[in-house]
Computed example of a mutant assay.
Amino acid sequence: MIPAEHSPAPTRTCHACHRALHPTATAQVCDHCHQHTARRLADLPGLYAELDLALTPGRRPSAVSVRVTCSGGQLPFKPHVADCRTDARLVLTGWVRDWADVLDQQAPVWPVGHVEQVAVACEWLRWRWDRAARVHPAVDEIVGEIRRVHREVDEAARGREERPVWLVCATPECGGQLRFTVSTGSATCSGCGARYDRIALTALPVAGRATAA
Rank of each mutant, 00 (worst) to 15 (best):
S62D: 06
T93C: 13
P3K: 10
E161A: 14
C169T: 09
D197E: 06
P137D: 05
R60Q: 05
P8E: 12
D31G: 09
V109R: 09
A119R: 15
L44I: 14
G113E: 08
V143W: 03
R160V: 04
E152Q: 14
A187E: 10
S186D: 11
R89W: 01
C174V: 12
T86V: 12
R89H: 08
A54Q: 11
G113K: 00
L44P: 00
L21W: 04
V206K: 15
L55H: 00
T188Y: 03
A20S: 15
S71V: 10
A170N: 11
G193S: 05
Y196S: 01
Q35L: 10
A27D: 10
C192T: 05
A100C: 15
T13Y: 04
D140T: 12
W95H: 13
G58T: 03
D87T: 14
V91A: 09
G46F: 02
A82Q: 10
I2E: 11
P137T: 09
S7A: 15
V165W: 05
W99G: 04
I199T: 13
V64W: 00
K78C: 09
D140G: 15
E123C: 08
P45Y: 02
W166C: 12
S183Y: 02
L204H: 09
T11V: 15
Q74C: 10
V115T: 11
H6P: 00
H80C: 13
E5F: 14
T11D: 13
C174S: 09
G193I: 06
R12Y: 07
G46D: 04
T211F: 05
P76T: 13
V109E: 09
S190C: 09
V149C: 02
E145A: 13
L21C: 07
D83E: 12
W127K: 15
A170P: 04
T13E: 12
D101H: 15
V29H: 03
